[in-house]
Simulated assay, not measured.
Amino acid sequence: MSQPHDATPKGGMSDRTGRFVVQPNGRTTPLSPHMSVWRWHITMAASILFRATIIAGSFGFLFVVAWLASLASGAEAYQTFAGLASSPLGLLIGIGLTLVLFSFLLNGARHLINDMAVGLDLKSANLLSHIAVWGPIVLTVLFWIALFSTGRVSL
């Protein structure tokens, strides 16, 4: 496929933006559907956040491995890890991992529902996506409020 500057999109205007391409059959088509063509939608956000959740969970797994290694290394190593985990940075990591967990659970439930061919119409897909995007934030805040209010976690 070539991309000449004189490609003429529908409407007869010359394309100087480089957003159109001449196909081998001579037909001029848009180069690709991009953000300028598609409007942002909540289902797109849910999909992107689900992938980000998987990546963040992979890094969070390192935190779990460090915790298990400190348990296996003895009381002194565990005390060091516990001290780091209760620091402000450790609490931030814990809050982030809680957000990842809730996001993974709600997005996983959304995928499970969709895999059963339920909730595929526009209204249901939007509702499930809103739950998957905003639900983890609400659940994380409530979870950590409960932990702080019961005294299980403190600064």
Score class of each variant (00 low, 15 high):
3 Q>H: 13
3 Q>T: 11
3 Q>K: 13
4 P>S: 08
5 H>W: 09
6 D>K: 08
7 A>S: 14
7 A>H: 12
9 P>H: 05
9 P>S: 04
10 K>Q: 09
13 M>G: 03
14 S>I: 11
15 D>A: 09
16 R>Q: 07
17 T>D: 04
19 R>M: 12
19 R>N: 14
20 F>H: 15
21 V>L: 09
24 P>M: 09
24 P>G: 08
26 G>S: 14
27 R>M: 00
30 P>V: 01
31 L>T: 11
33 P>Q: 06
36 S>F: 14
36 S>G: 12
37 V>R: 09
39 R>W: 13
39 R>I: 12
40 W>Y: 04
41 H>E: 15
41 H>T: 11
42 I>M: 15
43 T>G: 12
43 T>K: 15
45 A>V: 14
46 A>C: 05
48 I>V: 12
48 I>P: 00
49 L>W: 03
50 F>N: 08
51 R>H: 15
51 R>A: 14
54 I>T: 13
56 A>L: 10
57 G>K: 06
58 S>E: 02
59 F>V: 02
59 F>D: 00
60 G>T: 04
60 G>R: 01
60 G>D: 12
61 F>A: 05
61 F>D: 00
62 L>Y: 02
65 V>R: 02
66 A>L: 08
69 A>R: 13
71 L>Y: 07
71 L>V: 02
73 S>P: 01
73 S>G: 03
73 S>H: 00
74 G>I: 04
74 G>C: 07
75 A>W: 01
75 A>P: 02
76 E>Y: 05
76 E>K: 15
77 A>M: 15
77 A>W: 11
79 Q>W: 01
79 Q>E: 07
80 T>W: 15
80 T>E: 14
82 A>C: 06
83 G>W: 10
87 S>H: 03
88 P>E: 10
89 L>A: 15
89 L>N: 01
89 L>K: 07
90 G>M: 07
90 G>A: 05
91 L>G: 01
92 L>K: 03
93 I>W: 10
94 G>P: 01
95 I>V: 11
96 G>A: 10
96 G>V: 02
97 L>D: 01
98 T>G: 07
101 L>M: 08
101 L>Y: 04
101 L>P: 04
101 L>W: 07
101 L>G: 00
103 S>F: 00
105 L>I: 03
106 L>T: 00
106 L>V: 02
106 L>H: 03
107 N>P: 02
108 G>W: 00
110 R>V: 06
110 R>A: 04
110 R>Y: 10
110 R>I: 07
110 R>P: 09
111 H>L: 10
116 M>C: 09
117 A>G: 10
117 A>R: 15
118 V>Q: 10
118 V>T: 05
119 G>R: 05
119 G>M: 03
119 G>H: 01
122 L>R: 14
122 L>D: 06
123 K>D: 12
124 S>R: 11
124 S>C: 02
125 A>I: 03
126 N>T: 01
128 L>A: 11
130 H>G: 15
131 I>P: 00
132 A>H: 05
132 A>M: 09
133 V>R: 04
133 V>H: 03
134 W>R: 06
134 W>L: 10
135 G>D: 00
135 G>T: 04
138 V>T: 11
138 V>E: 07
139 L>Q: 06
139 L>N: 08
141 V>F: 14
142 L>Q: 04
142 L>H: 01
144 W>I: 05
144 W>D: 06
145 I>Q: 09
146 A>R: 09
148 F>P: 12
149 S>K: 05
150 T>Y: 06
152 R>Y: 10
152 R>I: 13
152 R>C: 11
